[in-house]
Amino acid sequence: MAENANAGISKKRHFKINNTAILFIILAGMFIIASYVGRPFFFSKLNLIPMINNLSFIGVVAAVLTMVMVTGEIDFSIGGNIGLTACLTALLLERGLPGWLVVVIVLATGAAMGAFNGMVVTVIGVNSMIATIGTMFIWRGIGYTLTNGESILAMNPVIDYIGRGFVFKVIPFPIVLLVVVFTITYIVMHHSKWGRKIYAIGSNPLASFLSGINVKKVKFIGFLICGMTASLGGLILTSLTAVGMPQHGQGLELLIISSIILGGTVLGGGKGTILGTLAGVFILSVLYNFLTIMNIYYFYMQIVQGTILILIVSTYEMKQTMIRRRT
């Protein structure tokens, strides 16, 4: 009888551990298929570096947005933030400001955008989905207004380096940023006191408040950092394309949120991991890249992307139901 019971326990654990592991297995499978079917181009420098750059800039934003989503909130304004950041960067460079100063101003503006979201959500109490859909339009609208809807060249040694530079001549700088941001968010989420508060809030905000956790502060800071990181993403994108235009980052919020959900984060909060998000970002990026080099029409790519998202999240749900059945 006892043996039976223990078998049940170990099975349940098995399930849990494997959620992220399964994602990485899928990813590995995709790599193998992509490198075989897409050979020799897939593993060429010409393909990998743009893919990694692209992936890095999405990943940086996704990692921080995961923190916001685990608290049970969401930020749709990241795409608009990226658009406005790109415009602002180009305009400031046009004025002749030094590159480093532009970076500082842009990141501060990003933080301010995040803080605004945080205020509307935590102080006024607007649902974060609504608040940030609102600011998504506002940020992009400001971008259009500032640039008159035009693209502006953004060239400057500092800015160029952010997206196209190499550390030690071989490692693309965006991937360094990715590694740094993921390491920090990983430690914060899974090993720090702050991270504990984030999970507690996502799991039960009222009980967290009644246990003396400053729920609003944690959420507010999450939004603030998310805004700042989105601006960092905007800087990378501006650098990669060498232009600032208000269309930058359009639709990206959905791609990024998809990767996070793909990685196992739950809308409503309390559940989600940084490694899962990393896997989610990789899966979608590799998929995109693979479909592109296979010359799959863009229209179909959209269908595939949506299908994959629903498929993977469906398996999460089915597993949940199976566990529930069992218990």
Binding site: H191, K193, Y199, A200, S203, N204, L206, A207
Partner: peptide, 28 residues
């Protein structure tokens, strides 16, 4: 509804009101 983070473990719930004492630094 008010006392527990139900999807978290026993230990996380026991330390919920005393997170600051979970370690000397910012880490747990």
């Amino acid at each position: 509804a008010e006392g527990l983070a139900l999807i978290m473990g026993v230990k996380e719930n026991i330390t919920l009101a005393n997170i600051k004492d979970l370690g000397k630094s910012f880490l747990i």
